[in-house]
Amino acid sequence: MIHNLAAGVQAFTSNAFLVSGPPRADSPAANDDGETGRRVLVDTGSNFDILPLIRERVDDLDAVVLTHTHHDHVGNVEAVCDAFGVETWGFDTEQPSVDNEIPDEGTVEMGLGTYEALHTPGHKDDHLCLYDGDAGVLFAGDLIFQNGGFGRTDLEEGDRQALIRSIDRVRERVGDDFREMHVGHGPSVLDAPFDHVELAGRAARMR
């Protein structure tokens, strides 16, 4: 199960996705075989109290995974890590918010799935996308958004050509039949997400 805990928040924040196993009556994060999955928060968001929103769905967390370390994605890191006694995982351990490295093409367990990490710079040097090929689920961070939107390249570490290469890499990796794209801002794309990836690649080349 994937829930955006920042949905409806009226503050400057990224989305913050709680990934866990499917719900069952006696455990909010267990499947029919009793597997809880690995309870992971993908990005923490910023400028709102995320702790009660996490506790509404799970009793504990196993890890925090960061798509990148812009403040709107990591502002709640300290509060989450202190409250749940967890560490963070991301691409660059030289960043203050990252405790453990996920290398390019490394994997991370989230929920009941295994996600491959794709290093996708252009918006920020340490940007990762996370893809579960079996489930057809992509966490795109701030690389790609709904309707062909793409990450800003006018910030420090922004690079339009690197961003285009990163979008192309994701497009080649996911294939045209993947099912879900969860993005750093705005709504998730649950209908023909590959079309939105292709559109982002074209749009990034035009502007």
Rank of each mutant, 00 (worst) to 15 (best):
N76T: 04
V77W: 00
V77H: 02
E78K: 13
E78N: 09
A79E: 14
V80H: 01
D82C: 04
F84V: 00
V86W: 05
E87K: 14
T88Y: 03
T88S: 10
G90W: 04
G90N: 08
D92R: 04
T93E: 10
E94V: 02
E94S: 14
E94G: 13
Q95N: 12
S97Y: 11
S97L: 05
V98T: 09
D99W: 06
E101G: 00
P103H: 01
D104R: 05
E105R: 14
E105K: 12
E109P: 02
E109F: 07
E109A: 12
G111T: 05
G113N: 03
G113E: 06
T114R: 12
T114F: 00
Y115D: 08
A117E: 10
L118R: 10
H119R: 11
H119G: 06
P121C: 04
P121Q: 10
P121T: 07
H123M: 13
D125Q: 02
H127K: 03
H127D: 12
L128N: 08
L128C: 10
L128T: 06
L128M: 11
L128Y: 06
C129G: 07
Y131C: 02
D132K: 00
D132N: 10
D132C: 07
G133A: 15
D134F: 00
D134H: 02
A135E: 13
G136C: 12
G136W: 09
F139L: 09
A140F: 03
A140V: 03
D142A: 03
D142M: 00
L143G: 08
L143V: 15
I144P: 00
F145A: 06
Q146M: 12
Q146W: 11
Q146D: 14
N147E: 14
N147C: 05
N147A: 12
G148S: 12
G149C: 11
G149Y: 13
F150E: 09
F150Y: 15
R152A: 15
T153S: 07
D154N: 12
D154P: 00
L155M: 10
E156S: 12
E157G: 03
E157F: 06
G158N: 04
G158S: 09
D159S: 02
D159C: 01
D159L: 02
D159Y: 00
Q161P: 00
A162E: 15
R165P: 07
S166N: 05
S166L: 04
S166C: 10
I167H: 02
R169E: 10
V170A: 02
V170S: 07
V170N: 02
R171Q: 14
R171Y: 08
E172Q: 15
E172P: 06
R173F: 06
R173T: 15
R173A: 15
G175C: 09
D176Q: 10
F178T: 08
E180C: 04
E180M: 12
